[in-house]
């Protein structure tokens, strides 16, 4: 008796796939094609006149030392956000995994920040660090440290990295916690009986078994830092001071939606798209080799 279920229908698979394909086409492929098209045009804001300018928009970008500086700023920002958000979340997850009493309360509190909109998260941290009104600058002044992120680029970068990571920690925390709970207790207990201390158990058993989660989160966090953080930048620094926090996605937003320079902004999104595609490919080809499933 044949027990396997066989689907002989030819059309059905396509029908089942159709909703996903339609969504991808409408929300991802079509806008991407539009961006590609717009990036080779020079157009006024109203769309009354439009000129095909070949790759002039790209030439403008790469001839602009400030754009190149923005590339570097983006690299620093993204690496910092990914590292801070991942390591802090991992630490918290390991601690929360150990807690016996009140575990639910800790977990709930740690997940909360994820529900905060990026712009609101930015404003919260901005208020804490505001040189005029903030609590922390006053405390720092007492120990002799002058905080003014309106003038000091390094401080502004630290501030936006903290704000952006804080928001992402909750998300990472959830995944790490789930990952930790999926690790069989017997493995850890066996190692403990063999005399391995907590640190050794973590690095030789827990961390390697967490690599699929870590890898997934790394990809998600890099994409987050590249694309979803402009709300934070907009509310905290507007890219300043002197371009110190002007990351690529914020420049796309400010040139396109504030400056109404559609061609230049589209060219930047195409570059950004290229970078993220390249990064994802690198992550899947090289980093994934070190992942144990």
């Amino acid at each position: 008796m044949e027990k396997r279920v066989v689907f002989n229908h030819r059309v059905l698979p396509y029908l089942l796939l159709a909703p996903q394909i339609v969504i991808t086409l409408v929300f991802f492929i079509w806008p991407a094609v539009q961006a590609l098209k717009q990036s080779v045009l020079l157009e006024d804001a109203f769309g009354l006149s439009s000129e095909f300018v070949w790759l002039d928009n790209f030439a403008d970008l790469f001839g602009d030392p400030f754009y190149m500086a923005s590339l570097w700023t983006t690299a620093v920002f993204s690496v910092s956000v990914a590292l801070l958000a991942l390591s802090a979340a991992l630490y918290l997850a390991v601690q929360a995994d150990r807690v016996v009493r009140g575990a639910m309360a800790y977990k709930t509190l740690l997940i909360w920040p994820y529900a905060v909109a990026p712009a609101v998260a930015g404003v919260l941290w901005l208020l804490l660090f505001s040189p005029a009104l903030g609590l922390l600058p006053h405390l720092l002044r007492d120990v002799g440290y002058e905080w003014n992120h309106n003038v000091k680029g390094g401080q502004a970068m630290v501030l936006v990295v903290i704000a952006a990571s804080w928001k992402q920690i909750s998300y990472n925390f959830l995944f790490f916690l789930a990952g930790l709970q999926a690790i069989p207790r017997s493995l850890i207990e066996a190692a403990a009986i063999d005399g391995a201390g907590p640190a050794r158990r973590f690095w030789t058993i827990v961390f390697p078994l967490l690599t699929p989660t870590t890898f997934f989160l790394l990809v998600i966090n890099v994409v987050y830092a590249f694309f979803d953080t402009f709300g934070i930048i907009h509310s905290v620094t507007q890219g300043g001071p002197a371009g110190a926090t002007n990351i690529l996605v914020y420049k796309v937003f400010s040139d396109g939606f504030i400056g109404l320079d559609l061609g230049g902004s589209a060219a930047q999104s195409v570059v950004l798209m290229g970078i993220v595609i390249a990064l994802t490919v690198v992550q899947f080809r090289y980093v994934e080799r070190r992942v144990h499933y």
Partner: peptide, 22 residues
Amino acid sequence: GNFVQIRDIINEELEAVWGGSK
């Protein structure tokens, strides 16, 4: 024209002066 973007450039450059890098 493009003065919204130009004001951003002005902000950026003035901040470089206030920060002492230019």
